[in-house]
Design a protein around this nucleic acid. Structure first.
Lengths: 151, 151
DNA sequence: AGTGAAAAAGCATGCCC
DNA sequence: GGGCATGCTTTTTCACT
């Protein structure tokens, strides 16, 4: 599917604030409300837009610590199995399987360091993990807004 | 600010789909529309809800490759400066400053490997970076939905 | 804090260019 | 693909418990 500049503009606006009204978006991209709606509907149908979500301040909910744990495991370990175990933990924010070393990167959000320790132990215990290394996040910046308009 | 179970339920519902209507949420949490609205307004005012955004399939937009680059730099390097340079790149998804080794972790999204190479060079060039190590993501899982209700 | 109902705003649809 | 006019849904506000 081909996206033109207007589609990218609309995506950028929704990325900034998904609750903008159609008329707000329409005036910013100089189109009618109906035209904008048609474009957004199309973006959803084609799967470019996966969904809408709310951005939450996790620290305010008591999940104050973020960490990344690098996992290394033996060649016989089933990668899918690792992904399954880690994703089953509610503390897991994301899991990335990696080409090379380490084999996987798990992004965790925990209450405190004791909790982190506990979760790392849990991962180590449930698999043939040959090694872990955990990076504790001091500060995080994340692009919640705006995305480059074209590849 | 204190959140009760209903607040967490509402957050979970919005996290799943931020475009649910108030009446939909109201019926699921067994409250009136007005009561739900007041709670959501409060969550926004207190900063628990930071905003609303759209989830995009980046691969469909041509940003098919994800990578993490670990940065190490000399003790004299200003961390804020690194963060500033990396966040200025549109390819940067997030930047984490780390306690220990490495000093920072940059999450990138790029078109292809040549593009990745280019961005890593850019980071290395603009700072007193003593070393980088890049992890190329083969597959990613991320929790787009549901969050543990209480810490 | 919660409720219910009325007013205002925004959305969805059909039909036109 | 874009625009306009219409009825319908959702949000917002307000008086009251």
């Amino acid at each position: 599917m081909e996206l033109d500049g207007t589609d990218h503009e609309i995506l950028a606006l929704l990325r900034e604030d998904a609750r903008r009204t159609l008329s707000d978006i329409a005036s910013r991209v100089s189109l009618s409300v109906a035209a904008v709606k048609r474009r957004i509907d199309r973006l959803q149908e084609t799967g470019v837009i996966l969904g809408y979500t709310v951005q939450v301040d996790h620290a305010k909910l008591g999940w104050g610590i973020e960490a990344f744990t690098e996992l290394r495991f033996s060649g016989t370990t089933n990668v899918a199995e690792i992904v399954q175990t880690t994703t089953a933990m509610p503390e897991t924010q994301a899991v990335f399987t990696i080409a090379g070393d380490p084999d996987a990167l798990v992004w965790l959000r925990v209450r405190d360091l004791a909790h982190l320790q506990d979760r790392i132990d849990e991962i180590r215990r449930s698999h043939r993990v040959t090694g872990t290394k955990t990076l504790i996040v001091l500060d995080a910046w994340s692009r919640e807004r705006q995305w480059p308009s074209a590849p």
